Computed example of a mutant assay.
Amino acid sequence: MTGMSRIDATAQRLDLLLTPPHACSYLDNHEAAILFVEPSLPMSAPLYEHLMERGFRRSSEHVYRPYCAQCDACVSVRIPVERFKMSRNMRRIWKRNEDLTVASATPTHREEWFELYRRYLASRHAGGPMDDPQPSQFMEFLNASWSHTRFVEFRLNGRLIMVAVVDDQPKSLSAVYTFFDPNEKARSLGTYAILWQTEAAKQAAQPWVYLGYWIKQSPKMRYKSRFTPLEGYRDRRWRDLTPSELA
């Protein structure tokens, strides 16, 4: 993380590192900067949840949040599980996927997972930096040694068609990444994965499902606004995002 400046966070006396400004990955003609928790800090699931409650997120072992000088488009969002109600369309998606079998597994490299991941990226991110993943990058990106991560497999007649990677926290589920068979478009698997996670959190009495960052102006991120009520971390507090904000 060469070139980062050091910032001292008062709440936990955490050392935070700020990247230099760089081109935003989501919004054209925007500059971005990222605030990282010092990598040498001993991280744990409870500390990570404390940081998620303050708008942070993990990628691999690194815990971060956007910290852009001229932009606040990235909003950390979560579903309040007890208040969430499926829309009519979501109920249809739920019913459409009732024939899938679901099982959880601990993080490890499995060729079956990697092959599905590779196909998904080739379909969704063709020409981008992620569309030709290497096996060594697969688990490095999705897992963290200190997290309680599980890979949730969804199968159709024994065939793997989706994997949802989730961090199982004391008070929440955090959706890390989901990848699925690009030929199964009719099933709306991305939506179903979030519905399944919300139901799983409800059964485990976990109040929230964290969905990462929502960016209203980014077509890739807009799908998260369909899951309402949706809480956003704004001005150092969580609140329901209004219909006008989500529209």
Rank of each mutant, 00 (worst) to 15 (best):
Gly3Ile: 03
Met4Gly: 08
Met4His: 12
Ser5Gly: 13
Arg6Glu: 15
Ile7Ser: 11
Asp8Leu: 11
Asp8Tyr: 08
Asp8Gln: 12
Ala9Phe: 03
Arg13Cys: 03
Arg13Lys: 13
Arg13Pro: 04
Asp15Asn: 12
Leu18Cys: 09
Thr19Gly: 01
Pro20Lys: 03
Pro21Trp: 05
Pro21Tyr: 07
His22Gly: 04
Ala23His: 13
Asp28Asn: 13
Asp28Arg: 14
Asn29Asp: 15
Glu31Pro: 05
Glu31His: 10
Ala33Glu: 08
Ile34Trp: 02
Ile34Ala: 04
Ile34Gln: 03
Leu35Phe: 04
Leu35Arg: 03
Phe36Tyr: 15
Val37Trp: 00
Glu38Pro: 00
Pro39Trp: 11
Ser40Leu: 14
Met43Gly: 03
Met43Asn: 01
Pro46His: 01
Leu47Lys: 07
Met52Gln: 10
Phe56Thr: 03
Arg57Thr: 01
Ser59Thr: 08
Glu61Ser: 13
Tyr64Gln: 13
Arg65His: 07
Arg65Trp: 02
Pro66Ile: 02
Cys68Val: 01
Cys68Glu: 10
Ala69Lys: 14
Cys71Leu: 01
Asp72Ser: 13
Asp72Thr: 03
Ala73Thr: 05
Val75Ala: 03
Arg78Ala: 00
Glu82Trp: 08
Phe84Asn: 00
Met86Asp: 00
Met86Ile: 06
Ser87Met: 06
Arg92Leu: 09
Ile93Gln: 04
Trp94Asp: 02
Lys95Leu: 07
Lys95Pro: 08
Glu98Ala: 07
Leu100Val: 11
Ala103Ile: 11
Ser104Glu: 15
Glu111Cys: 12
Glu111Trp: 15
Glu112Gln: 15
Trp113Val: 01
Glu115Arg: 15
Leu116Asp: 02
Arg118Val: 06
Tyr120Ala: 03
Tyr120Met: 10
Gly128Phe: 01
Pro129Asp: 05
Asp131Glu: 09
Pro133Val: 13
Gln137Val: 08
Gln137Tyr: 02
Leu142Lys: 00
Asn143Arg: 09
Ala144His: 06
Ala144Ile: 10
Ser145Tyr: 08
Trp146Thr: 11
Trp146Met: 08
Trp146Gly: 09
Ser147Val: 08
Glu153Lys: 05
Arg155Leu: 00
Leu156Arg: 02
Asn157Ser: 03
Gly158Ile: 03
Leu160Arg: 00
Ile161Met: 12
Met162Gln: 05
Met162Asp: 01
Ala164Arg: 01
Val165Ser: 02
Asp168Leu: 08
Asp168Thr: 06
Pro170Arg: 15
Lys171Phe: 07
Ser172Glu: 05
Ser172Thr: 07
Leu173Lys: 09
Ser174Asn: 07
Ala175Tyr: 03
Val176Thr: 04
Tyr177Leu: 10
Thr178Arg: 04
Phe180Ile: 10
Asp181Trp: 06
Asn183Lys: 12
Ala193Phe: 11
Ala193Glu: 06
Trp196Glu: 01
Trp196Arg: 01
Gln197Phe: 06
Thr198Glu: 09
Gln203Thr: 14
Gln203Phe: 07
Gln203Lys: 13
Ala204Phe: 10
Ala204Lys: 12
Trp208Ala: 10
Leu211Cys: 10
Ile215Leu: 11
Ile215Cys: 10
Lys216Arg: 12
Pro219Asp: 06
Lys220Asn: 09
Arg222Ser: 10
Tyr223Ile: 10
Ser225Thr: 01
Thr228Pro: 02
Glu231Pro: 05
Arg234Ser: 01
Trp238Asn: 05
Arg239Leu: 10
Pro243Asp: 03
